[in-house]
Amino acid sequence: MHVVTTQSGLGRIEDGAVALLDTAYPHVGAVLAEEGSLRSLASRTVRRRIPLDTATLMAPLGRPRAVWGVGLNYTSKAARTGRALPGEPILYLAASSGVAAPGARVVIPGTATEPDYEGEIAVVVGRRLYQAAEADIWPAIAAVTAANDMTARDVMRTTGIPALAKSYPGFTPIGPSLRTPDDLPDRDAIRVRTRVNGTLLQDDTSAGMIFPIPDLLSRLSWFAALEPGDVVLTGTPAGTGQDRACFLADGDEVRVEVDGVLPLVTRVVRPPDALAHDHRLTEPVS
């Protein structure tokens, strides 16, 4: 099942259109908090259908309770940077206030001189996971989507704190659509691609992960309980701006493509210094 949150309500994507559903839930995150899965959306009555290209797509999960991430989780990234493979995942928790709606303009603050993109596969938790075995992970995942885990590389370098480098308003675009895992052709080799201004710069699959999705979430769940609607960003492959010493600039467009879901497009704005800290320029998450 392929679902979206639109300005007109929740919908399933069917035959190039959005089938708007008869439900009072404001977004998919609310469905997961209440029901723990998206299964009920498959049988909801369709109120009406609208063309996909005319729908205004919103942040599919609203504002998640928690957004977890992992550093250096692709062998291609380790090879490009010359770093040894980690023995344990490098985990962090980013501020959920950094989540941006699909298509939003993301304002780069004046204090971030090396803003970077990170195309990633995001997994959305459906059922509570705590001290879970790997075999328990996929049955508890409600959906997969795309994410752009933006990072201020200079802030990361000077502070050593991922949460600070990744939590600026708008630095975590997620969406725009969600796909249930049983609808993926190969959940062990999900492809992720990133294009900047149309140029393909990242291209890999989850088969190249150092800690595959079941292993990653199982390890995380031994330290923190993952609740319905929580998002886990699963790492980025080689090809980031850091790898090329080329960072995002005013007017750049980043497009993250993940198997099975709609492309996630982010537009970067670098305002004059006087507006650098005006967070109103970043479109809010509903």
Rank of each mutant, 00 (worst) to 15 (best):
G98N: 01
I137C: 07
L91E: 02
A143E: 07
A24F: 10
A147T: 07
R65H: 01
L85E: 13
P169D: 09
H2M: 09
S8W: 13
P284R: 11
D243T: 06
L264F: 02
D136K: 06
S43A: 15
L281I: 15
I213H: 02
Y117D: 05
D53F: 05
V107I: 12
G98P: 00
D188R: 00
V3T: 12
T158V: 14
G251N: 05
P64D: 08
S286D: 15
M209I: 07
V285M: 10
M150I: 04
Y117I: 01
T236A: 06
T236P: 08
S96D: 03
R187N: 04
P181I: 05
V231W: 06
I90W: 15
Y168G: 09
V196W: 08
A59K: 00
D186T: 00
M150Y: 00
D250P: 01
I121V: 15
K166R: 08
H277A: 15
N197R: 03
N148Q: 07
V285C: 09
L21R: 06
P263L: 01
G82F: 08
D250L: 06
A84R: 11
R280E: 12
R157F: 14
S206C: 00
L91N: 01
S218V: 11
G229K: 08
M58V: 13
A66H: 14
A79M: 00
A100I: 13
